[in-house]
């Protein structure tokens, strides 16, 4: 079969010509975009939509951090992934980096299969000019907020549920931080999740688009056009509202007092329920590098085991335990933290 002619990938000027013709970006803005590094923490729905836009825009380097693997139920809204990724249960960070390579080979995608924790978040963010929130939980968002305020690094919050979503750029020292907006930490088991309330793909696209636009304005130094508030949307009832008037709290523990409760905890919770899934993540709470092949051999006597270069999966007692090389496990078939901890201790060991 004849090969199709290859497009002129080296022609950078042509590739970004429409974006460059947009006056607010221009050639100078494109140069800054191409020289920039963006960290995307969490690569599910919001994260993958943001990575897609960042890659197409020609961001120089994208750090993609995610702890999970692709499943069929992700495909309705997680735009970087396809059926082959789900069938092979590829880690999302790797699948996303692979997709970036197909979309724009000039972009350097750096996948990291990991949970963002107090132990690694500052290292992950080092060298980034802006951070995009692709997480599905507030514990990690507060952690990002702590790290970004400490490092003086802008980040863009985003959240979705049902047909609703919101987004806001946070510029440490200039605008309210996440703890100015939501001073109290979030208790586990209280908020609706994608599993209980559902989520539609279109709100993901909308919120990620706002996150991308705010991030690019930051990258090119156009702070004048950043949204001065929290942009909120409901696609089903057509409510679009810019929430304004949030003050920087004079006693904010994070951005005023520089007390970084989430960052200095030095360990995040050992167990986390996963948004949209009857599943719990169990984390060892300390740096770990498992020999997955050895673990797979050890678990083979306990139940059905499958092994890939990235993970070991064990089906046992009506549960499915997926263990990653950093020692984390996702326990499917339960939302009970104690059950998950027990299964982890029993099969993975603590």
């Amino acid at each position: 079969m004849d090969k199709l002619p290859q497009p002129p990938l080296a022609n950078v000027a042509e590739r970004y010509s429409r974006q460059v013709r947009f006056p607010a970006i221009g050639a100078a803005g494109q140069a800054r975009i191409s020289a920039s590094r963006v960290a995307v923490i969490g690569c599910g729905a919001l994260g993958s939509a943001a990575v897609d836009l960042l890659a197409r825009a020609g961001v120089g380097e994208i750090v993609i951090v995610d702890r999970d693997f692709v499943e069929i139920s992700n495909l309705q809204r997680q735009v970087l992934f396809d059926e082959a990724d789900a069938a092979a249960q590829i880690p999302k960070a790797v699948a996303a980096a692979n997709a970036v390579g197909r979309i724009n080979s000039q972009v350097k995608a750096q996948p990291l299969i990991a949970d963002a924790t107090s132990s690694n978040i500052e290292e992950i963010l080092t060298g980034a000019q802006v951070v995009i929130d692709g997480t599905d939980n507030f514990e990690t968002r507060y952690l990002i907020n702590d790290a970004c305020v400490k490092l003086g690094l802008p980040w863009v919050y985003g959240g979705v549920i049902g047909a609703s979503g919101m987004a806001m750029a946070i510029l440490p020292g200039e605008t309210p931080c996440l703890r100015c907006i939501y001073p109290e930490g979030q208790a586990a088991g209280v908020l609706a999740t994608c599993e209980t309330a559902g989520v539609i793909g279109a709100i993901v696209s909308l919120v990620a688009a706002v996150q991308w636009a705010e991030a690019v304005k930051i990258l090119i130094g156009d702070h004048q056009h950043l949204g001065r508030g929290l942009a909120t949307f409901d696609l089903w009832t057509n409510d679009y509202l810019l929430a304004t008037g949030f003050p920087r709290l004079a006693d904010c523990p994070c951005c005023a007092q520089h007390r970084f409760d989430y960052l200095e905890a030095r360990h995040t919770s050992q167990t986390t329920t996963l948004c949209g899934r009857n599943a719990v993540q169990v984390s060892p709470g300390h740096p770990l590098r498992l020999d997955l092949a050895e673990l797979g051999r050890r678990l083979a006597s306990a139940g059905a085991v499958s092994i890939s270069p990235y993970l070991v999966r064990l089906g046992v007692d009506g549960h499915e335990i997926t263990v990653f090389a950093d020692g984390r496990a996702i326990v499917k078939g339960t939302a009970d933290l104690g059950t998950a901890r027990s299964l982890y201790a029993r099969y993975v060991g603590v």
């Binding site: 599905d136 968002r141 985003g158 959240g159 979705v160 908020l191 929430a243 003050p247 948004c275």
Partner: peptide
């Protein structure tokens, strides 16, 4: 944005949002 102890004024629109945490 208003605090919870803010007095309400008549004929205004009050919008109430939960934390939105999915992603």
């Amino acid at each position: 944005h208003v605090e919870l102890d803010t007095p309400l004024a008549a004929n205004t629109t009050v919008s109430i949002f939960p934390k939105v945490g999915g992603g």
